Amino acid sequence: MAGVFDIEINDQDDDGRAEDAIDVDADEEFLSASSSSGIEMAEGFESVPLSEALVNPSTERIGPEHFQLLKVLGKGGYGKVFQVRKIAGAHLNRIFAMKVLKKASIVRNQKDTAHTKAERNILEAVKHPFIVDLIYAFQTGGKLYLILEYLSGGELFMHLEREGIFLEDTASFYLSEIVLALEHLHKQGIIYRDLKPENIMLDAQGHVVLTDFGLCKESVEEGDMTHTFCGTIEYMAPEILTRTGHAKAVDWWSLGALMFDMLVGAPPFTTDNRKKTIEKILKGKLVLPPYLTPEAKDLIRKVCL
């Protein structure tokens, strides 16, 4: 579960200025407050401006004192994630994933604030079986909290690491659900931009759930282009790397790279260093193992060339 919200990013504004990713420190307040059976009351909490109808049930007022910390699940450039149990009100004793973001870190620059707003807005607005569900959202004086469904199936990355490669039937099952999730996002005018095994979780029934929406681009209409340099290199489409402008098609390129990873055991253009990987994506030849079926080869060629 360690990579639930990991972000590998060399992010730049559209004008090309590099921005440093923010590494959120350990959440000492939350850890100390939850060391007993409950969590001490945090002063001055108030609701993040989200739709109550979509997020918080009825008029229940939620704060950190409603959750008991169980363990740390992971951390990334924009936050820290805990497994928690709800100890009061609705959903009593239900297990959730709690993403905690320090406001002081978020507001260091406009780009980080934009990422946080984008993730919050998308999780509020998008409801889909294969996209992680936002259950509650609230804030204290110094922190923002997103309470998300807990996905007990673990990361797709861990399953792929254990198996080495997936059989085509297994890969087809996962990829079909990912396609449905991406299509839904695209219909909402959202480009995902960070499709990789670490951002794909499995629920208790083994179905795919997309997580981590910090790198998404909202309000993208047909014909629109955006120029932000972001994502994880091995799964980034050429047009992102060349900064010539990209649209929703970059998600399909990443899907092809992910499909190759599932069937072969590594992304199609990976090398031992970042610069060589970029060169290989831009200029390298796609080499497909002979054991892949003609249908698999055809699909990978169509999205990764």
Rank of each mutant, 00 (worst) to 15 (best):
A2Y: 04
A2C: 06
V4C: 04
V4H: 03
D6W: 09
D11G: 14
Q12A: 10
D13L: 12
D15H: 09
A18P: 06
E19N: 13
D23Y: 05
E28G: 01
L31P: 02
L31I: 15
S34Y: 02
S47K: 11
P49K: 10
N56R: 13
S58Q: 11
S58L: 12
T59H: 10
I62Q: 07
I62E: 09
I62V: 15
E65H: 15
F67S: 12
Q68E: 10
K75L: 00
K80Q: 14
Q83K: 13
K86G: 02
I87S: 09
G89T: 05
G89L: 06
A90T: 08
H91A: 06
L92W: 07
I95S: 08
A97D: 05
K99D: 09
K102A: 12
A104Q: 14
I106L: 11
N109G: 13
N109Q: 09
D112Y: 04
H115A: 14
T116N: 01
K117H: 05
R120E: 03
N121I: 03
E124C: 15
E124S: 14
K127T: 11
F130E: 01
F130T: 00
D133C: 10
L134E: 08
F138C: 12
K143P: 01
S152T: 06
M158I: 00
L160T: 02
I165S: 08
E177N: 02
I178T: 07
L182R: 08
H184V: 12
H186K: 08
Q188H: 14
G189F: 09
I190C: 09
Y192I: 01
R193N: 13
K196N: 11
P197F: 00
E198G: 07
M201D: 00
H207W: 11
V209T: 06
T211Q: 03
F213D: 08
K217D: 03
E218Q: 15
E218A: 13
S219Y: 05
M225N: 02
I233A: 04
I233F: 10
I233K: 03
Y235I: 09
A237N: 11
A237M: 10
T242S: 14
R243C: 13
A247F: 03
L255P: 02
L255D: 03
G256D: 12
M259W: 01
F260E: 04
F260I: 06
V264L: 11
G265T: 12
A266S: 11
R274K: 11
K283C: 12
K283D: 08
G284H: 04
A296V: 04
A296G: 06
K297N: 04
R301H: 03
R301Q: 14
K302I: 01
